[in-house]
Design a protein around this nucleic acid. Structure first.
Length: 571
DNA sequence: GCCGTTTTCGGCCCGACTGTTTTCAGTCG
């Protein structure tokens, strides 16, 4: 996928244009960049299928930008960008990554002090040269030094799973102060994006200052970046930014709507409001000076003439148009899951026993689970040979007698070998209630080979689920090269469900791919891949991904009852 | 540079906080 590369180029073009004080174009380039970045499909595919015209259909992309995309796909370069880069030194955009430093300041530092990169910036700040510039002072000089240090220790975006834990803990602590009426985690966490840049929390209160005060005094707060009467930004350990906004209770809905984003979703809503003669902000939906909505998000969407849009869908990728036509799907709910079909125990690389996993799952209200330890080739994960597998199957039978009220399915996560055959023979696979097929080796095959390999496995009559279909690990490992469309098609034909693996660093299929798979009619299963009892709670991350993929309950097999799932697994 | 049942030209979301500016520009989300 070239989507991210292109988005990055357009962001950089926007930065350079902004430094040159060109108006409006930066906004246009950023809008196009965001749109390309969040697209569900590979932009190269879009171009191959429909040429420039198809590119023009992307929101925010017009003829000039689509031509640049074409140029990049064909030549790997964009001439206009290469020329722009020559105008300003390349280190300047890195200056703009420092909090509080935008294009105007960066360019001033360059023009007046010949500062081209962070190193020179730090040097100048330490020598006290920056405070002498017009528009800068002693404080801004310190802010720069602090900002650079901060940037160095923060490690970019964090996984949703981690961000949720941290945000929920903050929320609880703020709640305890007592002066809060409503409080909700907002921003990209509420939209359940797979990685999170910072934590946003919205509260309502009659004494906002008290809440802000309590927030900035929390033990994990390391630095206070901003602190006003209704809004504060802090850095909590270890280097995560958290924002709190406090509003009156009567505008909780509009505040939450605004603070949840996404930015593009909000801009589009505000434009719709303007066309209707209204104005939308965090303070409510206004007709002239009168507030006509604001207490709940529901009434805002209603007054704007559309269905309520769940936060997970707010990406401005068609959800607003669908809501206007009253065509939003009824998304799978977090409570719809009846079982978890991938987890590991001490029999391979898990930390708990079969019984412990079963009891924990029962506590979560599940009707069934599948124990799915690793097959023999997975040596690192203590994969089971046939002899051990037979003992393991007996152990599952024993656990069934010990833990009542939940169905324990006999399963295994079986390696797909390099030639596409399975790591156990069919006689062995037949003994299992549920077979997960997974690629765990030889990741670097060609696209054709890998597609053939996986498709062959999907055609095995005993395979029920393709586990973590693309193999990506978020910000660590790219997906294997494969023809996902072909794999979806073969999976559908052979009644193999495609997994949304809910493990925080996997989320594989991701939202975009899961949306494609479900649209094409393939069955989906959402499983945690838990290696210990505590990890069973990751299910919500998988369901969130499914919701972001517009998936309905009926499309997910582990929303079925025990008897229905058994029937499905028998094909 | 994009976009259009108010426009193919003339607009382009809206508000909080900070620092240095004595009234507001810059940055952020």
């Amino acid at each position: 996928m070239k989507n991210l590369e292109l988005a990055e180029i357009f962001y950089k073009i926007a930065d350079i244009l902004e430094m040159e004080k060109i108006e409006w174009k930066p906004r246009a380039y950023r809008k196009a960049a965001r749109s390309i970045e969040t697209m569900a499909t590979d932009i190269e595919e879009v171009y191959k299928k429909g040429g420039l015209k198809a590119l023009d259909q992307i929101p925010g992309v017009g003829r000039r930008i689509s031509e640049k995309i074409e140029e990049y796909i064909k030549t790997g370069k964009i001439n206009a960008f290469e020329k722009l880069k020559k105008k300003l030194p390349s280190g300047l955009d890195e200056l703009m990554n420092i909090p509080g430093m935008g294009p105007k300041k960066a360019v001033k530092l360059y023009k007046k002090l010949k500062i081209k990169n962070i190193k020179q910036l730090v040097k100048a700040a330490k020598k006290g040269k920056i405070r002498k510039l017009e528009g800068f002072g002693e404080k801004s000089e310190q802010d720069i030094l602090r900002g650079v240090a901060l940037k160095e220790q923060s490690k970019g975006r964090m996984l949703l799973g981690r961000a949720l834990d941290v945000a929920r803990s903050l929320k609880q602590q703020i709640e305890k102060t007592g002066s809060v009426k409503n409080i909700e985690i907002a921003g990209s966490i509420r939209r359940r994006k797979e990685t999170i840049g910072d934590i946003d929390i919205l509260a309502t209160s009659k004494q906002p200052q008290k809440v802000i005060q309590a927030f900035t005094k929390l033990p994990e707060v390391k630095t206070i970046l901003a602190k006003g009467p209704t809004k504060s930004t802090v850095i909590i350990s270890p280097g995560i930014q958290a924002d709190l906004r406090v509003l009156p209770a009567e505008i909780f809905g509009s505040g939450l709507q605004y603070f949840t984003g996404s930015k593009d979703h909000n801009i589009k809503l505000r434009n719709i409001a303007i066309k209707k003669g209204y104005k939308l902000s965090e303070y409510g939906l206004f007709k002239k000076k009168t507030r006509i909505a604001g207490k709940t998000e529901q009434e805002i969407y209603k007054k704007l003439g559309m269905q309520y849009i769940p936060p997970e869908l707010r990406t401005n990728t068609g959800e607003i148009e669908a809501a206007q036509r009253k065509k939003l799907p009824k998304l799978i709910d977090y409570t719809d899951i009846n079982g978890d079909l991938q987890m590991h125990t001490k029999w391979s690389d898990g930390s708990n026993t079969i019984e412990e996993m079963a009891r924990a799952a029962k506590k979560l209200g599940y009707k069934y689970i599948a124990i799915t330890d690793h097959s023999k080739s997975e040596h690192i994960a203590k994969g089971m040979d046939i002899k051990k597998l037979n003992q393991y199957l007996k152990a599952i039978e024993k656990a069934r007698t010990k833990v009542k009220g939940i169905t324990i399915l006999k399963g295994a996560e079986v390696d797909i070998l390099a030639d596409g055959s399975m790591d156990y023979d069919n006689k062995t696979l037949k003994k299992l209630d549920v077979v997960l097929a997974a690629v765990h080796s030889r990741f670097k095959m060609s696209k054709t080979e890998m597609t053939k390999r996986i498709c062959k496995a999907l055609e095995n009559p005993y395979v029920n689920i393709l586990a973590h279909p693309t193999g990506r690990i978020i910000s660590e490992r790219a997906p294997y090269k494969m023809d996902l469309n072909k794999i979806i098609e073969v999976a559908k034909k052979n009644k193999v469900a495609l997994e949304i693996n809910a493990y925080p660093s996997r989320l594989d299929l991701n939202d975009a791919n899961a949306r494609i798979a479900a649209e094409k009619g393939a069955k989906i299963t959402i499983n945690t891949d838990a290696h210990q009892v505590d990890q069973l709670r990751y299910m919500e991350l998988g369901v969130a991904t499914a919701r972001r993929a517009w998936i309905k309950k009926e499309q997910v097999i582990n929303t079925k009852t025990s008897s229905e799932i058994k029937k499905f697994l028998k094909k």
